[in-house]
Amino acid sequence: MRRANNVKAYKALKKRSLWQEICRYRVLWLMAMPAIIYVLLFSYTPMAGIVLAFKKYDYASGIFKSPWCGLENFKFFFKSGQAAVVTRNTFLYNIAFIFLGNFLQMITAVFLSEMRNKYSKKLAQTCIFFPYFISWVVVGAFIYNIFSVDYGVLNNILKSMGAEPVNVYTQPRYWPFIITVIDLWKGVGYGSVVYLAAISGLDTSIYEAAEIDGASLVKRVYYITMPMLRSTMITLILLGLGRVFRGNFSMFYQLVGNNGVLYNHTDVIDTFVFRTLLSSNDIGMSAAVGLYQSVLCFVFIMMANGVIKKIDDSSALF
């Protein structure tokens, strides 16, 4: 009996001291409060909305009173064949973006760093970086300027050569190529800055030694620069792979829009969720597909981070 009382008293004491601890740091807690409330409201509250994926949403009854429907929403998504199409597209596009992108960014950085005059180097870098700053709406506009059937640059050239004009907006097969090129073009400036930083961080004495030993410039680039960039590249590729199921909504939406003819080749999970939610108003299914994507993303980020941690602990995300 007495022991129980002691435990109670101890617990009360401990409780108070935790409370006192919190009070002691009340200024810091107050300073963190906006961020805590923000993520609770805008990130954690929507997580509770995941239940929508298992419900047949009914506008009158609201989120929590709508009837359950088990895996009905998922079944429809997978059986209709749309799951396979959008998952494949998201995955393959991102794989192309990650691998081709990193390769292009690396060689661009290498060639830029070999320019002799620092002003022309800066000017070139400024131009290459430029597309990164332009909104996808503007990029969509200028893609239209290139491919428009009536006034587009491409068809002007074709017409002037006497060839038949091509309407790419009705031909899905061109789009994987177009979209990949646009992604590389918009991202190469940003990515090459990362590689340029890695190159400028390399130890110059190695190059000097190699030069004294008679290694040509080409050999120095091939045997010193490229291998030294490998770890940067692997980390960046792994970080990219962690996001391999996250489609770039802005890009796909602005380049393709609501052009249903192209969906089979251009629809990614993000655009599909968006359409299911806002065009077909199918709340249950859009929530289910969103959950499917979140789980895939989570698994892949954890795996990518695990691998990075093994290779180079300091580059790991957490």
Partner: peptide, 25 residues
């Protein structure tokens, strides 16, 4: 609580409820 707070914030970049619940909220 600095590490706990950092994880609490960071977790939101790993997992999310998706567009639909966010939109409805």
């Amino acid at each position: 609580w600095r590490n706990k707070l950092a994880y609490f914030l960071f977790f939101t970049t790993l997992f999310s409820g998706g567009l639909t619940p966010y939109y409805m909220l």
